[in-house]
Amino acid sequence: MIQIEHSQSGDIITLRASGTLTKADYDAALPEIENAMTLAKGPLHMLIRLEDFHGWEIDALWKDLTFDLKHRGEFGSIAVVGDTKLEEWGVWLSSFFAKSEVRYFSFEAEDDARSWLEKT
């Protein structure tokens, strides 16, 4: 499941990803993310919170990758908050392919993640 929360400034959104993500999750979330990109005063920053995250179904992964490629370079900074070494490693690896600055934070450092996004 993907849940989206919008900040009051409109320049930061929080994506809460939990369980195994499906194509239906992306079909519901992507138009809202694109709308937030349009409404943002500058590049849209994202905080992605991985809560009991189990990955993607293959169709969902494909939808995620094509969305990322379509909008490569259009996002501001991206903070990923999680709780496993595998998630941290995945963020590190994906940072090589992103034009945006991507950083990983533990759940205990979520306030630091939000502060970092507000400063970028």
Results as ranks from 00 to 15, higher is better:
H71N: 02
L44I: 02
A36E: 05
R72A: 09
F53R: 11
A98C: 10
S18E: 13
W92P: 03
F107H: 13
L61K: 12
T22G: 09
I78H: 03
H71C: 03
L93F: 12
I48S: 04
L30C: 03
P43V: 10
E101L: 05
T22A: 06
G82Q: 04
I13H: 00
A17Y: 15
D25V: 03
K119A: 13
K119D: 09
R72M: 10
D59Y: 10
L50E: 09
D11M: 03
G82A: 03
R49L: 15
G10M: 04
A24S: 13
S94K: 10
E88N: 08
E74Y: 01
M1T: 15
E57K: 13
I78A: 00
F107K: 12
T38R: 11
K23C: 08
W62R: 15
A29Q: 09
L117I: 02
L86K: 12
T120W: 02
Y104C: 06
L47N: 04
I48N: 05
F97P: 00
F53H: 12
D52K: 15
A29D: 11
V91A: 01
R114G: 00
A113M: 06
V80E: 04
S18T: 13
A60F: 05
R72Q: 10
E34Y: 00
P31K: 08
R72W: 04
L86C: 01
L30N: 09
A29H: 10
A24N: 14
K70G: 02
A79D: 04
F53L: 11
G19W: 06
D25W: 06
